[in-house]
Design a protein around this nucleic acid. Structure first.
Lengths: 182, 182
DNA sequence: ATCTATTCGGAGACTAGCTCCGTTTTATAA
DNA sequence: TTATAAAACGGAGCTAGTCTCCGAATAGAT
């Protein structure tokens, strides 16, 4: 049960949760462009109720993906004191895994919530800076570059393309190691 | 004047051209999601006429970008007998330039026309194979990987992000040079 | 049990995609 | 020329989806 704010009325809280769970299920199955009416219907509430809790599609997407974003951010913290190259690599792998699993969530997050996206960027930039201080990654790279590459990599993929992801990450990572501007 | 097929009636040909030019202008300014009605209106024809010539959004996009795709394919041929690494690099630069200029045209093309996309892929794969034969690019890369990376790079960019493109291409290209699976 | 603030939910306004078909225009040939 | 048939036009109108508004229903406090 996810509390939206302090003290919603019981029915409101119930419907909020129902909508969130239903939306996640449907987004996963049909992508984020499904008719919002169908989410409301399947959750057993009226369309008006959906729009009261989530005034537009973005805010619903944001709410659905917030826990995932949080997980990725937490992961970054937990990796902060491990060896810089492995930390960055492992973190990027996690971002990619989420992005695969949740149908390009990185891009969704970017479109739906600048706020969530910049939190993500901030978390990652710690790891990137560590790797750069250790001379493991060229110095002219910014975290937004990495997120762009990695998110773009995984958006809108067919089954066969998913199989290529590991190779492509390797390419990117080994590209990152090269000299830089100097 | 672009002939659609042999012998259209004069008014039909005129409207076809008008729609194409108007669509290109509007896509460039407002992106490919604009209301098709607005294209018809600005071209001075009825919406029915637009749909007769272009039965859906994809076919209009495909028609608008076809000359660009052709240019990129032609470029690939013209580079075929130059030094393999430079050829591939220059070709990818051209793809990226188009993609910047035409608002992520690579991805559009992929979504709008599997056919155009696979022609693009075929043209590029010649250059890629040359580079791989010369041991300049790791052998486990496919042309679709490259197109995906490069298109991903340039889709949906803000002004500041455009400035990062050169760096990111460098990253990708230097990543491509590394060992491979062996 | 009563009352009031909160929430519900669907009717309906609005927008964009797309189709259908009566009207208009072009090309042809008499 | 003019008549005619085929081709093309274009917008009314259908569908589907987003989003709003407000009378009805409900929770929870007294």
């Amino acid at each position: 049960m996810v509390q939206k704010t302090a003290s919603l009325r019981a029915d409101a809280q119930r419907n909020y949760d129902l909508l969130l769970h239903t939306a996640e299920k449907i987004f996963l199955k049909n992508g984020p462009a499904v008719a919002l009416e169908s989410i409301a219907r399947q959750a057993g509430v009226g369309i008006g109720t959906l729009y009261r809790h989530f005034p537009n599609r973005e805010s619903l997407i944001e709410a659905v993906y917030a826990p995932k974003v949080l997980a990725v951010i937490t992961k970054a913290s937990s990796l902060f004191n491990t060896s810089p190259d492995k930390a960055l690599l492992e973190w990027l792998r996690m971002v990619v895994r989420f992005s695969e699993q949740y149908n390009g969530f990185g891009i969704l997050v970017r479109q739906a919530s600048m706020d969530a996206h910049s939190q993500l960027a901030q978390a990652g930039s710690q790891l990137l800076e560590n790797a750069q201080s250790a001379q493991l990654v060229r110095s002219d790279i910014m975290i937004t570059d990495l997120l762009r590459l990695v998110n773009a990599l995984t958006s809108d993929m067919t089954k066969e393309e998913v199989a290529r992801v590991d190779t492509l990450i390797e390419v990117i990572l080994s590209g990152l190691r090269s000299s830089g501007t100097a």
